[in-house]
Write a protein that binds this DNA or RNA. Structure first.
Lengths: 114, 114
DNA sequence: CACCTACTTTCTACATTGTAGAAACCAGGA
DNA sequence: TCCTGGTTTCTACAATGTAGAAAGTAGGTG
């Protein structure tokens, strides 16, 4: 890898953004849903989970299994949160992209706040 | 791949942006330089060229060898340009990222124009 | 009880992308 | 001739992207 290791690439960025935007209720399904809604592409759960796993190995997210009785059918959910270093890496990656795109006429400026 | 095939990932985006921003004089070395200046990371020429090659196979850039006598030491340069479909794909990818990041408090809005 | 179903994660496998470094090319000057 | 600077191409491997099948878990239902 490059000299600045581990700047997250495309999909990883998107997944981290999903986790960030969802906040507390971020687990596999909600991350997937968020991704699909905002990007318009359909993403498989497998894709989401393995990315999340890899992010966890890098220390960019942490996960915790739902405690107590999940009075809900199904396996205990695994909730994800962005770590400080994850946020840092995410912002660096985004910043680099922004610097790259600044002033390129054919590439639109980002929309204003939402 | 996903349903919307071939949205370029991280590094491909950066390389396309470099080509776009450089305009006419875009070839291996200038692309590399632009990347390094704006992102701060050091990128190898190999990385640049193979990415450029792959982008070309996808039809996102075209290349043309320097015509006439290159009255310069060295092999004839290969100049790259973004194709219309490359630009479209690039903008789609960026737009998806923007939608994902819009309204996420911990992720700064992009800087104003440069 | 045995089974079915909904929800969710985990595992497996493979394709694509990211990345570096060595090799080869080319021309001009020492 | 040899060296050097500028440039591309080739080779190889690691990391990321992506899908799909499998399996765990609980609650309902006959």
């Amino acid at each position: 890898m490059g000299v600045n290791k581990d700047l997250p690439g495309g999909f990883e960025q998107l997944v981290m953004l999903a986790v960030a935007r969802i906040g507390d209720g971020a687990y596999g399904m909600t991350v997937r849903r968020s991704l699909e809604e905002r990007t318009g592409r359909n993403v498989s759960l497998g894709a989401v989970y393995s990315t999340l796993d890899r992010l966890e190995t890098k220390g960019y997210v942490t996960s915790k299994h739902e405690t107590g009785a999940a009075e809900r059918g199904g396996r205990a959910r695994r909730f994800f949160r962005l770590t400080a270093s994850g946020l840092r890496a995410l912002n660096e990656g985004i910043a680099a992209l922004d610097r790259m795109r600044a002033g390129v006429a054919s590439v639109p400026r980002p929309a204003r706040a939402t």
